[in-house]
Write a protein that binds this DNA or RNA. Structure first.
Lengths: 146, 146
DNA sequence: TTGACAAACGCAACCGAGTTGCGTTAAGAT
DNA sequence: ATCTTAACGCAACTCGGTTGCGTTTGTCAA
C-alpha cells in the first residue's frame, strides 16, 4: 500500500506543485500527531528531525497546503493558528483550558439541519462553521501530572 | 427608566470600580452597535466622539469588563479579538467572508443535550463553546454595494 | 544530459495586535 | 481638604505572522 503522504504529494504534483523535503516532512508530522499543531510546533518538529527549515518556508507551506485543501486551519483563541489534515474528516474539538491539549470529538448529530434552517431564515449562504468546546480534560480534572 | 449603562456602572461601583468617562463610552459604543467590535474599532469610535483615549486604556478596560462578565470576547479567525455585551445573551454568529459583517443567530435547538452526551462519553467538563458560521451574507449574495 | 523556467527557499526587515513597566492623574471615601 | 488607589498615558516591547528580493533546485522538454 502506497503511503498516504505519497498520495497527497502525487495529487499536488498534478497541479504543478513540486515535491520538496519540507513538504513531505510537514505532512508526516501532522499525520503522526493526534492534535493540531501550530506553526512554531511544526518548525520545532522539523528542526528536531534535523531539517533546517526557515520559518518563512513553514508559513508559506502551510498557506499553500491550506489553499490546496490538504490542511485545515484552526483557532482556539490563543492567537495562534493550528493545522490538521483535512483527511481526518469533519469533526470538532475539546480544548482543555488548563493544559491546552486538544481532543477530537464528533457531534452525535451534526448541524446540517440547523444550518439549512438558518440559511432559509436569514438568507445567508453557510459555507462552513467552527465549533470548539472549552473546558477541563479528564487528566486535569483528576489532577494528573503535566 | 434608568439607562442600562448606568445600571452596569453602578454594579461595577459596588465592586470598587470607578466610573470613568472611557468606561461609560465603551459600554455605550458596544450597546449601540449591533455587531461585535474590535479594540481598534472601539478606539476609533472613541476618537470620533473626541474622547482622546490611549490604546492601552482601551485594552485594559476591555480586559476588566470581560473579567467582570460585562463583555464577552469573540474571535472570528482574523487574529483580532472582538467584544460584545454579555447582556445580549447566548447566541452564535454568521460571519460574512466577503464584507466581514457579523449577524447574530440563535440555534433553533442549542447544544446542551449534545454537550451532556460528550461530557459523559469523553469525561471532559465542558465550560463553554464557540460556534460561528462562515459564508456569504444576503447583501453580498445579491451583489449589493459595500 | 542539459538548459530553461518557475516553484520553493533563506534571510532580513517589517507589520500589527496586544502587553508591560512606570510614573502621573483623578475618583471617591474619610 | 486629604488620602488611597483605580484609571490613565506614554514609550518600549513581545510575538505570531508577512513581505521583498535575490538564490537555489525540482521538473520537464529539447
Amino acid at each position: 500500500m502506497e503511503s498516504k503522504i505519497e498520495q497527497q504529494l502525487a495529487k499536488l504534483k498534478e497541479k504543478g506543485k513540486r515535491t520538496s523535503v519540507a513538504r513531505g516532512a510537514i505532512l508526516q508530522l501532522l499525520m503522526e500527531n493526534s492534535t493540531p499543531l501550530s506553526a512554531a510546533e511544526i518548525l520545532a518538529g522539523l528542526t528536531r528531525r534535523s531539517l533546517g527549515v526557515n520559518k518563512t518556508t513553514v508559513y508559506r507551506e502551510l498557506e499553500l497546503l491550506c489553499g490546496e485543501g490538504v490542511l485545515r486551519e484552526l483557532e482556539f483563541g490563543d492567537r495562534k493558528k493550528r493545522y490538521e489534515m483535512t483527511s481526518e474528516g469533519h469533526h470538532h474539538h475539546l480544548v482543555c483550558t488548563i493544559c491546552r491539549r486538544v481532543e477530537d470529538v464528533e457531534l452525535p448529530r451534526d448541524l446540517d439541519l440547523q444550518e439549512r434552517q438558518i440559511e432559509r431564515q436569514k438568507k445567508f449562504k453557510i459555507l462552513n462553521h467552527t465549533l470548539e468546546f472549552f473546558g477541563i480534560c479528564r487528566d486535569c480534572k483528576s489532577g494528573a501530572k503535566r
